[in-house]
Design a protein around this nucleic acid. Structure first.
Lengths: 131, 131
DNA sequence: GGTCCTTTCAACCATTGAGTTGAAAACTGG
DNA sequence: CCAGTTTTCAACTCAATGGTTGAAAGGACC
């Protein structure tokens, strides 16, 4: 279909089997039969899953000698990451503004933020500001 | 049905309409009719989408006076983030090791052999379980 | 109470997705 | 060339999903 890249990546990872494959591939390349071995499904089904991951750009299989290796393609993760961080960043920014407003309305001056409610996650870095 | 939380989150974001809703909610809370306004679909369809986002934990709608607001729930993002970062991290670690190995071999005149890829994988025979 | 808006429930349709079986290509290695 | 594995193509089943229509509850407010 005319599904965009981001949708394909998210959809690909929405399946536990596919996520497990990615998890195992993150430990090292593998052949398809090695990959398929733990699962109780047909080899063709595994190939189908692989096709989905490949179409999502999460995995590539370099042409070459017959047992073609399956390799995790890490840059597809960046697509998700930038999307996620962009919106998470916006929300947290709103939270911070809200907290500031509340603190201000509180009348008291420099009150330490006692709420763990809107804690931002560990590392935030700068926000790549894009549309 | 018995779909795990991570699958629900990824699946929820695999739909462009739902992603757009999240994007808009990251700018601020909204009522359902406000949310629905840009789309050419039924109000009921929007409620369905909202239900999916809610089941995924991406959105919550505090009980209260009738036009219940829709609020983005940021902690569901952490689920994805930790998953993504874990595996991305592993891959990049492998890359670094490979680079180190190549650099080391570069000093010698030995033939290059890049076949260290797949170590034995102690299987967990059976059902796909997330690591 | 009655009226209007918001929210949900139910049935239905069309399309996709995961998985299967079966068979055909392709590429090895004797 | 032959045997065996790897890869892919095709058709089918079955469940899930996005969307619809229609109707029923749930507040809110005069």
């Amino acid at each position: 279909m005319t599904t965009d890249a981001l949708s394909r990546v998210f959809a690909a990872l929405a399946d536990p089997t596919r996520r497990d494959m990615v998890a195992r591939l993150s430990e090292g390349d593998a052949t398809v039969s090695q990959l398929a071995e733990p699962y109780r499904m047909t080899l063709q089904a595994v190939y189908k899953h692989l096709r989905v991951l490949e179409d999502a750009g999460l995995v590539s299989r370099p042409r070459g000698p017959q047992p073609r290796p399956v390799r995790l393609d890490v840059q597809a993760f960046d697509l998700m990451d930038t999307w996620i961080e962009r919106h998470r960043g916006r929300v947290e920014q709103r939270y911070r503004r809200l907290d500031a407003t509340l603190a201000e309305m509180n009348g008291d001056e420099h009150e330490q933020d006692q709420g763990d409610s809107h804690r931002s996650r560990p590392e935030a870095a700068g926000h790549p500001d894009d549309s």
